[in-house]
């Protein structure tokens, strides 16, 4: 409860400054970097799909396997 109040206060503080609107901002939706990122996203989704709405955690066994593999690669030492 105390933690939630603290977070709520922090969120209020976080969003206290309004986001201003610029009606004349250039359109970057077709900028090369946006299209490149979109292509990466499209390809990624086509290859790997999207998650179901459920929020399933890794099993302890799979988590250990992944961590061991990443450790062997020098990640997460």
């Amino acid at each position: 409860m105390k933690k939630n109040l603290k977070l709520s206060k922090a969120l209020k503080e976080f969003t206290k400054d309004p986001i201003l609107i610029d009606e004349n901002m250039p359109d970057y939706s077709n900028a090369p970097f946006v299209l490149r990122k979109l292509e990466i996203a499209e390809k990624f989704i086509a290859e790997h799909g999207l998650p179901e709405t459920s929020n399933i955690k890794l099993t302890a066994k799979k988590r250990k396997k992944i961590l061991d593999k990443q450790k062997a690669k020098g990640l997460n030492p």
Partner: peptide, 28 residues
């Protein structure tokens, strides 16, 4: 801790989407 209160985060790892956990390196 802050993000988790506002968003569900899922990470892609080992051919599957899973709930984000600290310590795992995800691809997306």
């Amino acid at each position: 801790e802050e993000i988790d209160k506002l968003f569900d985060i899922q990470g892609y790892i080992e051919y599957d989407w899973r709930k984000f956990e600290s310590g795992i390196n995800y691809e997306a």
